[in-house]
């Protein structure tokens, strides 16, 4: 489950030079297909264009339309109960995208907050939070996550708890460093001299200045969340029937690999493309907001 881990050194890998300017346009072209895909999985079921998703024991394990033996009645084929895979694929995609977004939010939210607090107040607040960050990054927390699931059973809330626990630290570390840098900027001193309260400085001035970086980290976190979810669901520890995500489709495809490989093929491909686009977008945004390239 190597993709389940968090890099202990997810220093944003230094982006190619000269890329700052181009980043904005490339971000647009990366966001576009993502938006189209997201809209598609939500709108397609409403159009009535999708095949009927019910069981049909006369048409089990049909290959996709473009292979010998396939038909356009089931463009992506059918599973072992004759259920249409395209219909499943679309509804599973919906859950996958939602989990990716929510999973990123639950990691980025607390991560940002803790990073801000540590960076701004320093002292013992920073010491405690830094120990937690170090602990999270220095430990195989995915095992702890598995232990939580073993303990609490699989459900969406537990999944989000796991995604939050495994994802917050990278964001907290970056936010902490950025906050430490910004709090030394002189406008913070100026605001203090004008009588601004500490919470005001943190939330009205430092946070907005971090927004770009946080959005970029959040984007990358969407990719991580989707990968973590897919692995957990694959092992039967994340999304479990009757709910369906691309990860849980991979789980049902695993048993059918020798007879109907296409059950697992398309969801896996979709995850790969989705995460690749999200990672490219995150990298582009990060380049754009790289403090070294800012200073506009």
């Amino acid at each position: 489950m190597s993709q389940l881990e968090l890099d202990p050194v997810t220093a944003p890998v230094s982006p190619p030079r000269r890329a700052g300017r181009r980043a904005r346009t490339s971000a647009f072209w990366l966001a576009l297909p993502l938006a189209v895909a997201a809209v598609a999985v939500f709108v397609l079921p409403l159009t009535g264009l999708l095949p009927d998703g019910g069981q049909n024991l006369d048409a089990t394990r049909q290959p996709p339309a473009f292979l010998a033996g396939g038909s356009w009645a089931h463009p992506l084929g059918t599973d072992k109960l004759g259920q249409d895979l395209l219909t499943q694929f679309v509804s599973a995609g919906r859950l996958t995208i939602v989990i990716g977004l929510v999973g990123a939010l639950v990691a980025i939210g607390p991560g940002t907050l803790l990073g801000l607090l540590a960076g701004y107040f320093r002292g013992w607040v920073d010491r405690v939070i830094s120990i937690l960050i170090d602990a999270q990054l220095a430990l195989p927390f995915i095992l702890v996550a598995l232990a939580i699931i073993a303990n609490r059973g699989s459900s969406l809330p537990v999944l989000f708890l796991v995604l939050a626990l495994t994802g917050w630290a990278v964001c907290a570390r970056v936010t902490r460093a950025a906050t430490l840098a910004i709090r030394e900027r002189q406008f913070v001193v100026g605001l203090r001299a004008a009588g601004a309260s500490e919470p005001r400085i943190v939330f009205r001035h430092i946070l907005p200045n971090l927004a770009g970086t946080i959005v970029a980290l959040g984007t990358l976190q969407v990719g991580t969340a989707i990968l973590v979810e897919s692995a957990l669901s694959f092992l039967g520890l994340g999304v479990v029937p009757p709910m369906n995500s691309w990860g849980s489709m991979l789980a049902s495809g695993q048993d059918e690999l020798s007879q109907a490989w296409w059950i697992a093929f398309f969801p896996g491909l979709a995850i790969t493309v989705l995460v690749l686009l999200v990672n490219l977008l995150g990298d582009a945004l990060l380049t754009h907001h790289d403090p070294r390239k800012r200073r506009r």
């Binding site: 900027r185 002189q186 406008f187 001193v189 100026g190 605001l191 001299a193 001035h205």
Partner: peptide, 12 residues
């Protein structure tokens, strides 16, 4: 009130 060396760093 304070006025600093780097005017850009003194403004949000």
């Amino acid at each position: 009130q304070v006025v600093f060396q780097d005017p850009h760093g003194s403004l949000d």
